[in-house]
C-alpha cells in the first residue's frame, strides 16, 4: 500500500519534471536564453476563436513564447484578476468589467477599445417565422429567448427595448449568450437576441436578422496590460497585434465592428 503511494508520488514528480523540463529544453535549444516565456491572456468567451488564432500568430512571430488563454465570462475574469490570478493581458467584452479591474489600478494606462459587437436576432435557418424587425419579437406567437439584464448581452437588449418602446415578453432570460443560442439551435425557441459574432460562429445552424435599433446598444471591447504582469513588454506586443492590422482582419472576419474612435 505504502509502496504504491510512493510510486504514485514518484510518478507525479516525473510528470511535473517533464512539464517543467519542456520549457528548459527549448531554452537550451534557443541558446540565447532570451525567450522561453509564457504569456497569459484572460479574454471574454466571445473572443475564443479569434484570440486563439491571434495567439498562434503571436507564437509564430515570437519563437519560444507560449500564449496561454483563459476564456470565460468577463465578470468571472475580472473577479479572478482582482483576486490575484496571474494574468498578463485582459480583454473584456464590456467596459464595466474592465472598470472593475482598472478601478483597482491593475491596468497599465488607459484600457483601449479594440472592437465593438452589436445584437442580432438569431432564428432557425430559413427564418420560418418570418421575423423581420425588432418589433416582431414582441409577437405573442414568437417564442423568444434573451439574456438576463444582469449580463452584458441582456443589458444591451434592455437598452434597445427602452429606445424603441417595444416591450419584449421572453420565455426565458438566460445567464449567457451561448445558452440563448443553444435554445434557438435546438429549435425550442423561435428567436433569440445574441451578438452578430455568435451568429457568424454558428453559420448554417442559425440565421441572423439585422435590425437598425441595434446601433442603440453597441458593446465596446476594451483591452489592457495587467500591472502585475512580469512580461510587460511581451504583453504590450500582444495588445499591439490585436489592435493592429492583423488583429483587425481576424476580428472583422468574425463579425466584430471597428470602434468609432479609430
Amino acid at each position: 500500500m505504502r509502496r504504491m503511494l510512493g510510486a504514485v508520488i514518484a510518478g507525479l514528480g516525473l510528470v511535473l519534471a517533464a512539464c517543467g523540463g519542456g520549457s528548459a529544453g527549448s531554452d537550451a535549444a534557443e541558446g540565447s536564453g532570451a525567450s522561453d516565456q509564457t504569456l497569459t491572456v484572460f479574454a471574454a468567451a466571445s473572443l475564443t476563436e479569434t484570440f486563439t488564432e491571434l495567439g498562434k500568430r503571436f507564437e509564430t512571430d515570437h519563437p519560444g513564447v507560449t500564449v496561454r488563454f483563459n476564456f470565460a465570462g468577463s465578470s468571472n475574469l475580472a473577479q479572478q484578476i482582482v483576486s490575484g490570478a496571474p494574468a498578463d493581458v485582459f480583454a473584456s467584452a464590456n467596459t464595466k468589467q474592465m472598470g472593475v479591474v482598472a478601478d483597482k489600478a491593475m491596468i497599465v494606462g488607459e484600457p483601449q477599445v479594440f472592437v465593438t459587437n452589436r445584437l442580432q436576432i438569431a432564428v432557425a435557418p430559413g427564418n420560418p417565422k418570418g421575423v423581420a424587425s425588432f418589433a416582431d419579437l414582441a409577437e405573442p406567437e414568437t417564442t423568444l429567448v434573451v439574456c438576463a439584464p444582469q449580463v452584458p448581452c441582456g443589458s444591451a437588449t434592455q437598452k434597445v427595448e427602452q429606445a424603441t418602446g417595444v416591450d419584449l415578453k421572453p420565455v426565458s432570460e438566460e445567464p449567457d449568450v451561448r445558452s440563448v443560442l443553444g435554445k434557438v439551435i435546438s429549435g425550442n425557441a423561435d428567436a433569440g437576441l445574441v451578438y452578430v459574432t455568435d451568429v457568424a460562429a454558428e453559420k448554417g445552424k442559425v440565421d441572423g436578422v439585422n435590425f437598425p435599433e441595434a446601433e442603440k446598444a453597441i458593446n465596446d471591447y476594451p483591452i489592457g496590460v495587467v500591472t502585475s504582469s512580469k512580461n510587460q513588454e511581451l504583453a504590450t506586443q500582444f495588445v499591439e497585434l490585436v489592435r493592429g492590422e492583423v488583429g483587425a482582419k481576424v476580428l472583422e472576419t468574425a463579425g466584430f465592428g471597428t470602434p468609432a474612435g479609430s
Binding site: V145, A148, P170, V171, S172, E173, E174, P175, S179, G182, K183
Partner: peptide, 13 residues
C-alpha cells in the same frame, strides 16, 4: 434546469 427549463423570474428561476 438551466439547460432544459431556462430562467425566468417566477416561472423557472
Amino acid at each position: 434546469t438551466i439547460a432544459f427549463a431556462g430562467s425566468l423570474e417566477g416561472t423557472t428561476r
